[in-house]
Design a protein around this nucleic acid. Structure first.
Lengths: 147, 147
DNA sequence: GTACAAGCTCAAGTCAACTTGAAGTCAAGG
DNA sequence: CCTTGACTTCAAGTTGACTTGAGCTTGTAC
């Protein structure tokens, strides 16, 4: 097990498909050195970077957002623990918001669907913040049944 | 305000774009009667069905899953409260699971990224169930950094 | 030296959930 | 009658996150 890892090794260790790793590289989320052959060689810290990406995805960030976060890392030196933990600051808030929404939805499960009203101003399927946050394609909010 | 609603009215009342409503109809998630003109006319119960769809989406179900749920409703009569609430049974479990994962991720935020280990067997970014549940494209789990 | 596994690039395909556009019809007000 | 807005269908486009395939090169094991 050498100092530098091949894409296959990184893929097995991270659980991320090699094609996905190449894709991430194309999007500048990760980078690799090249062997004389043109094959990718990853230094061990790349694994942490990839872990960070997977982690952030599970939380709900898009690759673009993740890229913006990663761009905040110092380009000149290997990131320290402090660097990493600074990045994930603020995520807790995001997680909490999503958890709150899920709690609301869970309440609505019995209160709204159970009772049959299913309208947001009376029940609590979504709050004003959710509505304000509606953007992009697809249904993002439920306006309610009153004029 | 008549007995039957036009697609525009339903769109305004539900917050779901008319194009999305047509799309749902194509996917047999909702249905409509037609006026002589060929224009869609929705009976009021359609609003509840649409609310159900939006609700289920927020919880994280795909349209296909939602379709399967809706197919369980009695085709011969208007669904009752009991019908609706039977559908949403089991969702609470699903919500709880997702909340638990988010809690784990939140813990990992400080424990794993903070400490720098970022590997799942030692930290708690994902549990065995998550790994087993890995399917479909994209990274779904993090195998860890040990052989 | 010869398989054959593993890598490479680049273009194109996939999937979900819609949206957009074109080309035409219908309904209501003046 | 005419305009304007709401509606229709059908085909094609969009976005995100990848995957797949073709065609070619490299590395390793016997």
């Amino acid at each position: 097990m050498s100092e530098l890892l091949t894409i296959g090794e990184v893929s097995r260790r991270s659980g991320v498909a090699a094609s996905a790793l190449r894709f991430y590289e194309e999007r500048d989320l990760i980078s690799s050195e090249r062997a004389g052959s043109g094959h990718r060689r990853y230094p061990r810290p790349a694994l942490r970077r990839i872990a960070f990406i997977v982690f952030a995805q599970r939380i709900g960030l898009s690759l673009e957002e993740i890229g913006e976060e990663l761009a905040k890392l110092p380009p000149d030196r290997a990131p320290t623990r402090r660097d990493w933990s600074r990045l994930s600051k603020g995520w807790a808030t995001r997680i909490d918001e999503r958890i709150e929404e899920l709690e609301r939805l869970k309440a609505g499960l019995t209160e709204c669907i159970g009772c049959g009203c299913l309208s947001l101003d009376r029940c609590r399927l979504a709050n004003p913040d959710d509505r304000a946050g509606a953007r992009g394609p697809g249904p993002r909010y439920w306006i309610g049944d009153v004029p």
